[in-house]
Design a protein around this nucleic acid. Sequence first.
DNA 1: CTTATTTCCTAGTATGTCAATAGGCTTTTT
DNA 2: AAAAAGCCTATTGACATACTAGGAAATAAG
Lengths: 150, 150
Amino acid sequence: MKISTKVEFGIVALADIAIYSENGDTVSSADISRRQNISQKYLEQILVALRQAGFIRGQKGSRGGYTLARPASGITFAEILDGLDNNILADTYINDDGSSGDLRETVNSCIWEKLNGYMREFTAKMTLADFIELHRSDSGESEGEFMYYI
Amino acid sequence: MKISTKVEFGIVALADIAIYSENGDTVSSADISRRQNISQKYLEQILVALRQAGFIRGQKGSRGGYTLARPASGITFAEILDGLDNNILADTYINDDGSSGDLRETVNSCIWEKLNGYMREFTAKMTLADFIELHRSDSGESEGEFMYYI
DNA sequence: CTTATTTCCTAGTATGTCAATAGGCTTTTT
DNA sequence: AAAAAGCCTATTGACATACTAGGAAATAAG
């Protein structure tokens, strides 16, 4: 399955904000754009969506930026996906006209809903905090910030 | 997640062929089109894809049609999805240029691959025969062909 | 042998979504 | 007042989806 850049960048942006606002600072879109190598203008649109979905708070003006609206341990992937993409976890089965055949109904109501349920189950269990933890252990256990030299 | 009509119709067509070719007859695209209420011309394209993927055999000419190329109990949903849609079960993560940030790599390599794995696991377990069984018990246990009257 | 039937192949088209790019307005701090 | 940031809206190119359409090739029936 293809992950859209909107979802990918959204998750990355949330994680970036979580990581770099730990000391109380705000994180600007320019910061994220630079660190994560994402087009700033595109990123801004995604940040607006993340704010509207209630994950982050925006502070306008000089020295402004974003902070998490609630702790990373309370933000699940299911919520993020729902907030950024209204397709990926949606039960899209709508009984159009009632005239569709039996088999078509079984495909949608049984198979697809079940698959969807699995995905929702998995994504509801994982939080943004888990993801950051995963990333930290993934980038090596050592304490050093830079690993270019041994 | 949205199911494409190509996949939906493809599954339905396979099931229809499996059901109506049990006595040895072939099943024509016109038959399926009528029974399942699907545009015949569109269906034909899907049937070609299903044949090229090795699920069905086509017999040209008068009294021709389709039959399953192998037993329904040996055709898994993972195979069908792979045959009809090269996106839905694919690990699309490609390390584009190597310059992408750490977080982006973690999203793709850990989260998405894992989600993908779950989907593949689930769909690899279910066969076309299972689906037909499911559909039969779904449409009521009674033996009668018509249920419009009690 | 001819004709009807069926699969099979290719092209086109309308619609929508994705992934940005771009410009500028609004708010807040310095 | 000016700079820095978020916020809002419009536009665009590329691509995918879901068909429609026309006909060529093969095969069985009469």
